[in-house]
Design a protein around this nucleic acid. Structure first.
Lengths: 154, 154
DNA sequence: GTTACTCCCGTAGTCAGCTACGGAATCAAG
DNA sequence: CTTGATTCCGTAGCTGACTACGGGAGTAAC
């Protein structure tokens, strides 16, 4: 179970990790995954460790770490730098919490706008569009109106 | 107060809206802001309405609307399409709420990881890094492990 | 009337994280 | 030994929202 065929081509590795071949090659170029030496012929072979690393990358990515930050984490990989890893985790936690707060403010504003639209059906004046024109200061309390998107909603 | 100098150059408009000149020109190219005819000479002049539109764009952007979506909203601008505007608002509200849920799951996972790191200071084995290796299935309940970043934390 | 700033316009570059393309080499099956 | 899939490698394209550059023209101040 922990020792499959310790020799996958990149295509097999891609399937095993459900990533694209090109993605893995991209990670190699970024230095996140080592390129194994070409053993015989000229085709590289990958082992369980490579698969584990892809797993690591994907999990960290899910937690919101960028590829650069994942690079940092991988430098601490031996487990001896718990403090640094924790610091990175705490930073990320802070940014996640800020993002949640921003989104909750946005949620409340949108909620109100949509409700107002529901309340006065049939009227010609749309309160949602009106609020976009007039700004949302009343709805948000001053100081909350940011210049740029508070959050990337993809 | 509502009628300043009804004739700003793009530079003045940029300052008034605290956007860059290039940004405004970009919005013109995208069709979000009208290019006024060149009146005398060959320099365009903008009025309060242009400023209001930039305000609209920024507020909508803060709410998480993309420039494309803002284009949609602007097509409804006369206020007669309250239903469509509300529908767009509801869609956005749904995606905001999903994003909040994702972030809260991430928050919980990070919280636990950081706490474990704090709990066993001085140990060689870092539980945060270990979890990234092993995956977070235990911490998240199966089915939550997404392939790609759940959220853009910029 | 000269200097210095701003505007106009098109094009191209930036960031992140991929994704695609094209041509040569290699490998496995028949 | 040929066919067809896969790999290798470099380079280029994609998305979204800007941001920068370069050269020419207009405009304002002294």
């Amino acid at each position: 179970m922990s020792e499959k065929q310790c020799s996958m081509t990149i295509g097999v590795l891609a399937k095993a990790s459900s990533m694209g071949v090109e993605t893995i090659r991209y990670y190699q170029r970024r230095g996140l995954v080592a390129e194994p030496e070409k053993p015989y012929g000229s085709i590289r072979h990958y082992d369980e460790q490579a698969l584990a690393r892809l797993h690591f990358i994907r999990t960290a990515q899910w937690l919101g770490f960028s590829l650069d930050e994942i690079g940092e984490l991988l430098k601490l990989e031996d487990g001896a730098h718990c403090d640094e890893a924790r610091a990175l985790g705490e930073q990320k936690l802070t940014s996640v919490r800020q993002k949640i707060l921003s989104l909750q403010r946005i949620e409340r504003a949108l909620e109100e706008l949509v409700q107002e639209c529901c309340a006065q059906q049939g009227n010609v004046n749309c309160p949602l569009l009106a609020s976009l024109h007039d700004g949302l200061e009343e709805k948000l309390g001053e100081g909350n109106a940011r210049k740029r998107p508070a959050v990337n909603l993809s």
